[in-house]
Structure formats: C-alpha cells, structure tokens
Design a protein around this nucleic acid. Structure first.
Lengths: 353, 353
DNA sequence: CTTCAAATTTACAGCGCTAGAAGTCTGGAG
DNA sequence: CTCCAGACTTCTAGCGCTGTAAATTTGAAG
C-alpha cells in the first residue's frame, strides 16, 4: 500500500508515467479507455501521489505560514480559523503552517529567517515588535502580506483597520452616554506597540471630539495582553483613588479583565462605568454584562490579505499595497446605545473605507 | 539571492556538492580550512538550503499535522500552543500544520484521507465522531497518535485523562459543599460524544458516592460547544422551573455560559449554585466569579503524545498504547473548598494514575 | 487506399539535495 | 624511498513527480 510510485502504476497499466500523471490530474487529452485502464491500476495498487515529489517538480508546496504572537489569544485563533477556511478554497487550496512568535523580537526574527527556503509558498505575518527595515531585509524572497498596524515597509503589502477612527468612535460612543471621566486600559507599560499607540491616539481624538480633555492619568497600562493583568492594573488604579465612569479598552481581553475588577469592587456596569472592548472575540457575547466592542471585519481582512498574497505568489511584484478594511462598533450591554436625545450617529462614523 | 543551489555554492568554492552538504550539516570529516572556504562561498552567495530537495531526498518533512475540531475553542488553541512549543524542541524540531475538522464526520474523514502522501511525518488527532474502525482503515501508513477519549482502535496509540474519575471528583467536590440538587450541563442533545458520555458517567458516579441520586431531568444538553448555547439551555431549564444548587459542566465554555445565565437571573454563585467547569482554560481565572475546574495536565498530555508519535515515526509498530495522564481539580471561587467540617479530600482523589 | 493534421501518448531531462561507494591525498612505518 | 591506513573529497545514483518536445496513433479528406 505504501511506497507505490507513479512508475509502479505506469508499469501495471502498461503506459508511461506521464499518462498516469495526466489521469491523476484530470488533464485533458486522455482517452476514456486509457483513463479507465490507468484508474484501475491506481485503485488496485492503492496509489497515492507523493506530495514531496510533486512539490519538488513544481516548486510549490501549497502551504502558507501564518505567523503571529500566540494562538491562545482569541483574536488570533479566530483569525487562524478564518484564514484556514478561506485559504482552503483559494487558489490551489492552501493549508496553514502555524508559526508563533510569542510577540518577541527574537520570535519575529526567527519566523522571517527560517534557514530553509521553499517550505511555504507565502506568509501572512502580524508583527508586533520588529521594524519595517528588518522585515524588508530579512524576508528574502518569500512573498509576505503583513497584518495589523505594525511597522511595514513601503515595499510590502499590508492589511489593517483604521485604528484611530475606530478608537475615536468607541470613545465618542461612551461620551454619548454622558460619561465625562473616560479612561483607557490595556496598553503596554514599556515599549508601546503601534497598535496601542494608534488606539490611544484615537481615544484622545474621540475625547476631544466630545468636548472632553485627555489626561495622562487616565491611561492605565497593563503588564500583558491578558484579562488577569488588566484586572490587576485597573484594580490598582481604582484602589488608589482613580474615579472613572467610562473605559475604552485596548482589546477584549483587557475589557474582560476590567469586568472582573469592577465586579469585585461592586461597581456596576454600565451604570457606574461603561466599558468598550476591541476585537469582538466570541466571548464578548456572553460575558456579564456582554461587551460593546470594536469589531474589525475579520472576514474581509482575511480575504483581502489572502488575495494579495496569492497575487504575490503568482509573481506580482509591484510596490506595497496598504489596504484598510472595515470595522463596526458592536453595541452590547457594557455600553448600550444612548437612550435617545442625541441624534443617532451616522453610519458613516462607524464604517471606514 | 533566491535560487542559489547547492551546486552553485560547490562551484564557487571549487568543491563537490557533498562537501558543501557536509559543511551545512556540520558533519565531521571536513577540515577546518575546507569548512571555512565553503562557508565563505555560502555567505557570499546567500545560500539557503531548499527544504523541498532535502525532504525528497530524506523522505522526511519535519511537519506534523495537528487535527482537531476548531482552533477557536480555547482548549484546542492552548493545546496547539503547547504542542507547537514542545514539538519545536523535540526530535528534529517539528513544525505544525493546522487541520480543523469542525468536529464533523466529513471533516474527520477528510483529515485522515488526504489524497497526498508524504506531506507530514505524523499526526496528532483528536477525533470526535469517526469510529475506531474507520480511523484504522483510513489512516494508511501515516503515524498517528490519538488524543482525547474518542473512539480508538486497539492498534493505535492514544492519550487521555480519566474522565470518569475526574467528573466524579468534580461532582463530589460540589456535594461536599452540601449541595443536593446538582445538575450536569453542556453535552450534545443528539449523538452524545464519547467525551460527554464518560463525563456524565463520572458525574453519576460522583453523585452516588456522595449519597445522591442521578436524575435524567438534571442533564441539560446544549446545542453547541459554546457559552452562548449553554447559557440558552440552562436559562430555559431554569425558567421552566428547574431548581438546582450545584452544576457540573462538560467544559469551561459551558460553565461560562452558565455564569451568564445565572447572573441574568440574579442567582448568586457559588452561594445559590456552585459551578465546576472543565479544561482549565485561561479565562477561568478571570471570570466573575472565577471558575473551579477540572484541569487536565496538558503539558504531560502533549509530551506523552509527542513522544509516542516520534517513536512511531522512528518505526515503532507495536500494538496501540493507551496512556492516561493526570488531572487535578483547580478550586476557585465558583465552587470553593468546603469550609471545614468534612475532612479535606485526599489528594489521591484528585489525581489519577 | 493514401496523406496529413489533430489527438494521444511516450521519452527524458531535470527540480535540489542526500548518502554510500569510490577515489585522492596525507603522513608515519618499514 | 615505497607502502598503507586513515582522513578527506568527489562520484554517482537516485528520492517521485512534472513539463517539454518528440513520437505515435487516429480519423477525415482526397
């Protein structure tokens, strides 16, 4: 059963290898009788084409690397699931190789400089630390599309959402509830990521658009991207006297941590503090209260990224294309829609190009 | 830069391909001067060995398939992260190919019958639907280790935890809090999975060991493995008059849904209802209240599974080995330790073989 | 019955690398 | 100064499949 080669089938059927290959690939120019004869030999021998031989001959592997910090973060696992499902039906049907960088510089370098070439046809990469220059220098000739708002060389493709606009929309949403003391939770204490930077920028913009003033004291950093770390940070801030009535979180994990910290202190959500998260991960639907959150259009993101990657693999080598995909603010219990009064926000405010 | 072959390096250095290959692999019998000369050529040409050629020549790819229902389920993403980290440092350093089955029979069949051979060296597979017989028939000659308590042929390796013992321990833990009406939440309404079956069995055993009686009405099925579905099911059961004071959940997602359903109805946890989850996913630490849960020793599971798989790949072909790994009950707020009175449970009760 | 173009099928040269056999070159022993 | 073991290198096959070009067959027209 194992180790049956194309040649074996060819001999059995009394034809050339190439004819067998044509049959296997449903190529045209194979007469029905021949096709049947070959197929019988294939079945009798239990032949299964060997991927390695094919790959070497064609130079393609049908594999894409998906590189990001950590699959355990729901945003990434949801992305992986989506990309995997879309990739399966895209092009020749790509499969995914999982590459975790742990969000560290070394991890990201490692992902870019695998000593072996040819293993994957292309890569989807969400960098967090590495600089644009290093990405450009290290990627060799591997087709790559970058995800997220990290640093990106002008020569490479990239897909992201408009973080500033989204953060501003989220912040305005809270302000529209009449909140005046709106804090931001969950950015890095050291080495602010570009993601956090943009979101904080948008937060400030949203405050100003709502006639409020940004204060450094309202920025609550967190040690890690995790509910635990965020709960600890917010808890400490509250315990040391910080008074807030609204909270924009860098991501849903931070928001979940916030729910915990607020509950523990008997602070009611959204009555005392309105909370908005970011990413619209599955859990936001069932937390208590459920989370209002910025929902990037992940499906669109994955499709656009894969399309561009497939084009690159096919040989496109123009300058980098930077695509912006939609987001929307999903309103749930933690920061409900403003009751009435203020006119409903225009849709356009929630949807960027 | 791209397309530099071993041969090019050999010519540049004025040596044979084999010598270059020896240098690349740090093989012995290469004089220092020769090594240096070759290395210079490699650096000058920016040579990177092509994985495909190597793979075809050695017959190994260094890839393992990791197949399970859906990466979005935290249990699986945590497993993937762990396996990926351990595999990286195991054997020759394996990398992971992600294969999602969606938990469907077709998905599982597809994973087992990829038409191409040779792509991966082995597979870690957590089946949910497919029968032992079909697994045995379809896997061809691909080395596989099965994960979880699904159906497994006697000829194949498998790693799991003692679900019955764990469910019994969880149930006794709740009973030890003095609860009498302990329900079970989260199994499939149709086509019970083996996982659910074993856990329900253990639940019944735990009840009986605590002098309680199992009642069919206390089994609350759920449409899907998700907090949303479980919240809906439990909510409906409560609304239609079901009275409970304890709840054993099939998994942490069901438990998270339960928290939501109970909160919505103003039922206090753990005062009114004590809840135990299963899997010890990261979120259990920060839900409100935090979740007491059955924690399989995932690290051990991953290591044992990888060890067996590596042995299979190396040629071992003895009968299937079924390994049972440890679990422990992690006690948190949703079902705290019994206050005093009843003697502390013996450790042995929480740790199986 | 030829004849020729179209339709099929075959031959064969790699894709890039590894591994075992075979060859070449040391330096010390005889 | 010759010979030989041991140390290093080179040779030479493939690994299994595909793509191109050439060879063969087929079928309709003449």
């Amino acid at each position: 059963m194992a180790g049956v080669r194309l040649q074996d089938v060819a001999e059995r059927a009394g034809v050339s290898m190439k004819t067998v290959s044509n049959v296997v690939h449903h190529h045209p120019h194979v007469s029905a009788s021949m096709r049947e004869r070959v197929q019988r030999a294939i079945d009798e021998l239990g032949y299964r084409p060997n991927a390695l031989g094919r790959q070497l001959a064609t130079g393609r592997t049908g594999l894409l690397a998906l590189a990001f910090a950590d699959v355990r973060l729901p945003y990434f696992s949801e992305l992986a699931n989506l990309v995997s499902r879309i990739a399966e039906t895209t092009g020749t049907g790509y499969r995914l190789l999982l590459e975790e960088t742990e969000g560290t510089l070394e991890g990201e370098r490692a992902v870019l400089s695998t000593s072996e070439a040819g293993l994957v046809d292309g890569m989807l990469f969400q960098p967090a630390q590495i600089s644009a220059r290093e990405i450009a220098e290290r990627h060799g000739d591997l087709p790559i599309v970058l995800l997220g708002e990290g640093s990106a060389p002008l020569t490479m493709d990239k897909v992201m959402i408009d973080n500033v606009a989204a953060a501003a929309a989220a912040t305005r949403h809270i302000a529209a509830l009449g909140r005046k003391r709106i804090a931001f939770l969950g950015h890095e204490a050291q080495a602010l990521s570009s993601t956090s930077r943009l979101r904080i920028l948008g937060y400030q913009e949203g405050l100003e658009q709502s006639g409020l003033v940004a204060e450094p004291a309202m920025l609550i950093a967190s040690d890690a991207v995790s509910p635990t770390a965020s709960a600890r940070s917010l808890g400490a801030a509250l315990d040391s006297g910080l008074r807030i009535d609204g909270l924009v979180c860098r991501d849903d994990l931070a928001a979940m941590g916030a729910l915990r910290a607020l509950h523990e202190r008997g602070i009611s959500i959204p009555d005392d503090v309105a909370v908005v998260g970011w990413d619209n991960i599955a859990f936001t639907e069932t937390t208590f209260p459920s989370l209002t959150t910025v929902a990037p259009n992940l499906d669109q993101l994955a499709r656009v990224a894969l399309d561009m990657l497939v084009e690159r693999i096919a040989g496109f080598d123009g300058l980098g294309r930077h695509r912006v995909v939609d987001f929307e603010l999903v309103v749930r219990e933690s920061a409900p829609a403003p009751l009435l009064a203020s006119p409903p926000l225009d849709d356009a405010e929630f949807t960027a190009r």
